[in-house]
Design a protein around this nucleic acid. Structure first.
Lengths: 228, 228
DNA sequence: GCAAAAACATGAAATATTCCATCTTTTTTG
DNA sequence: CAAAAAAGATGGAATATTTCATGTTTTTGC
């Protein structure tokens, strides 16, 4: 595995581990990992499957998908660097949702048994993991609130702000999702997404050029998040 | 504190602690707790406040409330016995949401510093706490999905099933919430709640008598949860 | 590069939902 | 206990949203 070795010295996960677990524990973990490339659309973790891995994502963007009686919905979106599978791991190892690459990704598969042993032996590592989980929980909660108690305009505005702030950290970005996927994220019809984006464009809040989106009036968009 | 002492031998929280932390740690915890009664409507933990307590709820039912720009929404409902404040504790001690008694409650306030020390020293206790947190997360996730991707009928059906299965464990129960609160839970207007409940009654799925609700056709209700 | 598929787009009809006005019933409070 | 307040209920108008039908553009796979 030449790829694995070439990355390992500068790996962020290693940096975190260096601060929280001993060299021996890390070497254990290291031996258990395998480097992996996921192509756009590939399933990294599959809903309902028993899993024996966590994945530390080095590069790329993923979506958290839940299939509800045949209907796909998107719970949230996350980007590297991040540890994937923690919520599932805590759910008796049964994947509560699927995690799917929405652009090409690189990650290291971490053996679940080794992870568990380290978690149990290193409170500070466990606390770090807990913290990461809490952040995801908070993010989900925000989506939850936006989705439940806003109308479609507000939900889509929230999604745009989320993508801009948390995923791309830029006011201009290339949409990684189709209109249909945004609809699955916003919990509305595809047509409604198209019309709403177009309306935002007409109102001068954003500028659309195919999948390229630029937020022109952030204050205006924030207003729609609250009021819409 | 006579009330405190009289309960402590049979306390569930003590039973859990006995399995995961040593006597010395528990005595520490014990000395830090104070017994407290919360009347219906009282705020147990207040959103945005820095808190220095967790609460182990012995009896009663509570709602998790989030105030979003002046609009109150209900995230979920929980009943004793349960540990309250874990999500907030993990969120840098800043209360992410409020927890409010919807009927009279009894609980023990647990000092946050003592809790933290025990959490750090006892991996199995931490894992237990983590597990409790995961359950709450899963519950929130279910609400989230129901709320986002169902229409009002489905959401209200889900709420009825949730109250019946997880809170009252009976097909007949006394609604602890007003129609307005159900609306805050379901993310819709009060009128819509009233009409929908009435429709369920007309359809013979439930029977309403004021705040008394009986689920007559559970299969039918489950169907509405999925399709509605 | 071309054919097929998927994504994007638009408008109109059907449906769901809220908002508002008004009334009755129940609960709270002094 | 009576008055006031809150909750529950109802109907209609206004608004939001979906569904469907249809056409255009872009992407995908051989």
């Amino acid at each position: 595995m030449p790829l694995k070795t070439s990355h390992c010295n500068s790996c962020l996960f290693k940096t975190i581990c260096d601060q929280t677990i001993g060299k021996e524990d890390f070497d254990d973990l290291y031996r258990s990992t395998t480097f992996q490339i996921f192509r756009k659309g590939e399933i990294i973790l599959r809903q309902h499957m028993k899993m024996s891995n966590l994945v530390f994502l080095h590069t790329g963007i993923v979506k958290f998908c839940y299939n509800n009686y045949g209907k796909d919905i998107i719970l949230t979106i996350d980007k590297a660097p991040t540890l994937l599978g923690l919520a599932n791991y805590l759910n008796n190892n049964v994947n509560f949702f699927s995690i799917i690459a929405i652009e090409d990704c690189e990650g290291c598969m971490i053996d679940e048994d080794v992870f568990q042993r380290i978690l149990t032996n290193n409170p500070s590592f466990a606390l770090q993991a807990l913290n990461s989980f809490t952040n995801m929980f908070r993010q989900s909660m925000q989506s939850f609130i936006s989705l439940s108690y806003n109308q479609v305009q507000g939900r889509i505005a929230n999604i745009l702000v989320f993508l801009s702030k948390h995923i791309y950290e830029s006011s201009i970005f290339h949409l990684p999702l189709t209109r249909k996927e945004i609809a699955q994220f916003a919990g509305c019809s595809t047509e409604n997404v198209i019309n709403t984006l177009r309306k935002f464009d007409h109102d001068g809040i954003i500028r659309i050029n195919g999948k390229e989106i630029e937020i022109l009036d952030e204050k205006g968009l924030q207003l729609v998040c609250r009021m819409g």
